[in-house]
Design a protein around this nucleic acid. Structure first.
Lengths: 139, 139
DNA sequence: CTCTCTGCAAAGCATTTGCACATTG
DNA sequence: CAATGTGCAAATGCTTTGCAGAGAG
């Protein structure tokens, strides 16, 4: 395999911090548990013309970079938060209101459990997410 | 307001344990973290002709009765489990495989926190769900 | 005979994707 | 220019719903 081929093959993309992405990040830092739709509205404040597709694509990237945490619910839209100040949530099963829970006792415990199970890069969102031993080995 | 009117107004429905519902429950007791689609397949084993709509409607009822727990993920289909033997999950962020976590230390802690915050009917799925003080008061 | 349930098919939403063009390095 | 990002609109996929008929109490 020559150099040229290798180059064409599979380099990971180098992400750019575009103004749209910065705006999404800013919106997330200000607001709390925002939906994609809400983020769109806020971003459009300074930047009309941004599309929902871009919001979703951006959230994806930020999520994979560990900068943003996502909370999915059945039926309704997912919510996103800046991963900076980690905390958990109480979700009312009736009015669906989200309340923040500060302090990470739960997170620490959950992290310990996930670690024991061989996971790494753990992200405690209450569904314990991470990388499993297999996937960690395979790369 | 006379008796007739009251009767017509808002009695909660009395659910029946139909064969379809029993079948869904059975499927859930055997399998682990099943999607609605998978449940449909299994139920159709003994009972061809059952529809996906019925599966969802049944899952809804079972969920509200506390017999079934739901786990939602962004994008992909939600998973359901019999609420009987409570446990949590590890979700691999790459291969998306779900692994069970036995033991409910996390759950107990989370429950305590939710209780302190005034929630009741708590269901720890890792997103702490319950009824908030307002909703509990209002009815 | 009334209430509840079901299948079917048609909506409804949230999210993803294809494409042509804009932008960045 | 080569790589990456964007808007737009169409497509996808999961879930919900309306309706008319079936079944249970």
């Amino acid at each position: 395999m020559d150099v040229k081929t290798a180059r064409t093959e599979s380099l990971p993309p180098r992400y750019r911090l575009t103004k749209q992405r910065a705006a999404v990040l800013r919106a997330l830092e200000k607001g709390q548990h925002l939906s994609a739709e809400t983020i769109l509205e806020r971003v459009r404040g300074d930047m009309p013309g941004v599309s929902l597709g871009t919001i979703y694509r951006t959230l994806d990237i930020l999520r994979m970079s560990g900068l943003v945490q996502m909370f999915a619910f059945g039926g309704s839209a997912a919510r996103y938060e800046a991963a900076a100040d980690k905390h958990h949530h109480l979700l009312c099963s009736i009015c669906r209101e989200l309340t923040d829970v500060r302090g990470d006792v739960v997170g620490e415990l959950a992290t310990a459990i996930a670690t024991d199970a061989g996971y790494s890069d753990i992200d405690v969102a209450l569904t314990i997410t991470g990388r499993c031993t297999d996937c960690a080995t395979r790369r």
